[in-house]
C-alpha cells in the first residue's frame, strides 16, 4: 500500500466522526464518507505532497455535504424538516446513546448546516479558525459569526429540550 493510501486510511475515523455530527444517522454518515473517499481517490494526483491529508479530505467532504444541502434547499425539500426534527429523529431508540448524547446530537441537527459545520469543525475536530475557514471556503469573520450563532442556537435548543423534559416529568 502506498503512503498516500495509508494516510487516507488513518483519517477515516475522524471523517466518520465529522460526518456523524453533520448527519446523525450512522449509515448516511458512512455513505458521505464513502462518497468523499471515492472522490479523493479519483483526485489523488491533486493532493500536493506536504499538504495535510486531513485538511484535504475534510475539504472534499465538506464540499460534498454543502453541495447536496444546497441542492436539497433549492428543491425545497428542506421544508420537510419540521421544527421538532430533533425529537422525531431520535425515534430509532437505542440503548447505546446516553440521553445527554442524544439530546446534543439532535440539537446539532436542528441548527443550520453552515453553522453546524463551522461549530463542529472547531469545537469537536479541533481545527483553528484559519484552518476551518480554509476548509469551509469562507472568510474568517464569517466563520466566527457562524460559530457564535451556532453555539447560541445550540444552547437555546438544549435549554428547550431540558425544559420539555422537566415538563414531561411533572406531568407524570
Amino acid at each position: 500500500m502506498d503512503d498516500k493510501k495509508a494516510a487516507i486510511l488513518s483519517e477515516i475515523p475522524r471523517l466518520r466522526r465529522y460526518a456523524r455530527s453533520l448527519l446523525r444517522d450512522r449509515d448516511s454518515a458512512d455513505d458521505l464518507v464513502q462518497d468523499c473517499l471515492e472522490r479523493a481517490l479519483v483526485r489523488l494526483d491533486n493532493w500536493q505532497t506536504g499538504e495535510s491529508p486531513r485538511r484535504w479530505l475534510f475539504t472534499i467532504m465538506h464540499h460534498l455535504f454543502i453541495d447536496q444541502m444546497r441542492k436539497v434547499n433549492r428543491r425545497g425539500e428542506a421544508a420537510m424538516l419540521p421544527l421538532e426534527a430533533g425529537e422525531a429523529q431520535a425515534a430509532p431508540a437505542d440503548q447505546v446513546e446516553t440521553i445527554a448524547s442524544r439530546e446534543i446530537m439532535d440539537a446539532l441537527q436542528a441548527i443550520s448546516p453552515d453553522r453546524r459545520a463551522a461549530l463542529v469543525m472547531v469545537a469537536i475536530e479541533g481545527f483553528s479558525y484559519a484552518e476551518a475557514a480554509n476548509i469551509l471556503g469562507v472568510p474568517a469573520g464569517t466563520l466566527m459569526s457562524r460559530i457564535a450563532r451556532g453555539r447560541e442556537e445550540l444552547r437555546g435548543l438544549l435549554d428547550d429540550t431540558s425544559r420539555r423534559r422537566s415538563i414531561r416529568i411533572v406531568e407524570k
Partner: peptide, 11 residues
C-alpha cells in the same frame, strides 16, 4: 442510500 436526502428529510 441517499445520505443527503436523509439529511434533509430524515424524519
Amino acid at each position: 442510500s441517499r445520505w443527503w436526502l436523509s439529511a434533509a428529510a430524515a424524519v
